[in-house]
């Protein structure tokens, strides 16, 4: 016990001592950020040799959103209450259970795969086809997993940045990952018009719930293309 208190006191006095030290003349220098330095080690440099093409696709998506998708999703939002739209979002997520199951298994996260399976069974039955999420109330949280993440676990590098029409921010690895996820999505195995229809409904429904996020991004950034690219790689690097 004594030793533990001594260590504790010692570490505390170290903190106190460190605080006593005068900070170097800060204002002239670049901001020193110890946590950012830690992050930088974990993150590879962003490579975007196809920037002109990517930017063109970004602008295409931006216009598609402003002129088509946003008005449609606004109309939909006006007629469908939020609770309904959230249920639809949950149901789509529920249907994509095989994506999470397979990738959790491939990553060796068997406990997560088990939780996902229990969630799927509970939410499909008690939760009426996934419209509700009773499993979350029993502390079974979603165990997200996708093929891009699996490839990262196996140390596949992300490759260059790609901004796709409609699909948006990605990388070479991310694109392969998306293709893999689509193969595992049951929606793909619907007859083609129904499949596209379902994906369309999914997209519009998602936008009706999250369109403020894109608007806020545009408002808060000076170069939304660079902001998206930077955020894409940073959030991926943290998940790896």
């Amino acid at each position: 016990m004594k030793a533990r208190i001594a260590i504790f006191l010692l570490s505390f006095s170290c903190i106190a001592f460190a605080n006593e030290e005068a900070k170097p003349g800060t204002q002239d220098q670049e901001f020193h950020d110890p946590f950012a330095a830690e992050d930088a080690v974990a993150q590879p440099k962003i490579s975007d040799p196809l920037e002109p093409m990517n930017r063109a696709f970004y602008h295409f998506n931006d216009k598609l959103y402003s002129w088509v998708l946003r008005p449609v999703s606004k109309g939909y939002r006006a007629v469908a209450p939020k609770a309904f739209r959230e249920s639809v979002e949950r149901a789509f997520a529920n249907v994509k259970y095989p994506v999470r199951l397979v990738n959790n298994v491939l990553e060796g996260r068997f406990k997560s795969a088990g939780i996902e399976t229990t969630r799927f069974v509970v939410n499909t039955t008690v939760g009426l086809g996934g419209l509700f999420d009773p499993a979350a109330r029993w502390h079974l949280q979603p165990q997200l997993a996708a093929f891009d993440q699996t490839l990262a676990v196996y140390r596949v590098p992300s490759g260059i940045y790609l901004h796709w029409p409609i699909l948006g921010a990605s990388s070479v690895r991310g694109s392969v990952g998306t293709a893999g996820d689509i193969m595992l999505s049951p929606l793909r195995y619907l007859d083609t018009p129904w499949g596209y229809g379902a994906e369309g409904v999914n997209k519009i429904n998602m936008l009706s719930l999250h369109s403020e996020e894109y608007d806020a991004l545009k408002e808060a950034t000076l170069d939304p293309y660079v902001a998206l690219r930077s955020a894409y790689f940073e959030s991926r690097a943290r998940k790896e």
Binding site: D33, A36, D39, I46, L222, R229, A231
Partner: peptide, 8 residues
């Protein structure tokens, strides 16, 4: 901060 730094 990092996001703005990249934009800048």
């Amino acid at each position: 901060v990092k996001n703005y730094r990249d934009q800048f």
